[in-house]
Design a protein around this nucleic acid. Structure first.
Lengths: 169, 169
DNA sequence: ATAATCCCGACTATTTTACTTGGTTTTCAC
DNA sequence: GTGAAAACCAAGTAAAATAGTCGGGATTAT
């Protein structure tokens, strides 16, 4: 179980999805703006999440992504493994022959720690997170921003600014 | 508390030191051969370990490194922080303003996990590790190899091979 | 038909890790 | 006092991973 910002991006995005469950599907553009992650990078992450059977995408206008399973049966560990692929910590990668076919000195220590991390992340689901007060608080602030973007001119401005930046390159 | 192979190298080397405590100081060359880490890379790691007050080096023939503190009062977390310097996991780095001055959605989750990892690694000392049966077993095998190197011709061969490789470049 | 959206592959930039090179000092042994 | 063994030091390189870009499809609601 490796811990990288990549995995964190994925969990954040999935949590965003979970928070909007029941409403219309969430577009990557929406997540990109709210969580400040590049759209194309999100696309790559979601390709992996889709292959792992964690999300379903629907194309066309009004489309976007939805969770493919109940949020209470998606653990954080699952999300991270989906985008991380090889979870081995290079050398000592699950196999016990990290040093000339022998276990290295600290083999058991890292395995033990890795297990502990997995246990922790596997014991927490998206459903559990969306019910946490801090998450709800942050989500409400973000929802306000989202509303502003939809009803006001902000989104248009962002899109137009993007277009301008595009022409400049 | 970040987890990288760099930290693992450092812990392995420190454990090697702890295992030889009481004998003559351990040379980096010795560690390099036994743990299969490049000598110059070890030098860099030990520069940090020295600055953190975890080891003391003595120069000249017969010199090498020794632990600067009792092995029972050196935790694994200390060793890792010594070589890792910035322990922040980029964004969410301890500070609570990871997203536009606000906490990001998963802020508490990562802080919680980070604490758990630190707790675990801070609760284990080098002294504790050298008393573990698996570590003792691996150490004994490595000690046999070390003996062989000292008394036999193997070390000479390695050094000579290095010299040959040097001339080839 | 058009625009929104997912989908896809290849490419680039940045950062980190791991390692290299080529030294200089210090200190022991002879 | 010379030589060799070691720590010490700074600068560079190589490979990998992360993060992001670009340019296009393919679908589908309106």
């Amino acid at each position: 179980m490796r811990l990288t910002t990549k995995g964190r991006y994925a969990v954040t995005a999935m949590l965003d999805l979970a928070l909007q469950e029941g409403k219309r599907p969430v577009t990557l553009q929406d997540i990109a703006v709210n969580q400040e992650i590049s759209l194309s990078y999100l696309e790559q992450l979601f390709a992996k999440l889709r292959k792992a059977g964690l999300v379903r995408g629907t194309r066309g206008p009004g489309g976007g992504y939805r969770l493919a399973k109940k949020m209470d049966s998606i653990s954080i560990a699952e999300v991270i493994s989906a985008v991380d692929e090889k979870a081995d910590m290079t050398r000592c990668g699950g196999q016990s022959d990290c040093l000339d076919g022998e276990k290295c000195l600290t083999h058991e220590l890292w395995m033990e720690l890795s297990d502990k991390i997995f246990e922790f992340l596997n014991g927490i689901t998206l459903g559990e997170l969306v019910r946490r007060p801090e998450v709800i608080a942050v989500a409400e602030r973000q929802e306000a921003v989202r509303e502003g973007l939809r009803s006001g001119r902000l989104k248009t401005v962002v899109v137009e600014a993007d277009a301008v930046i595009g022409t400049l390159k």
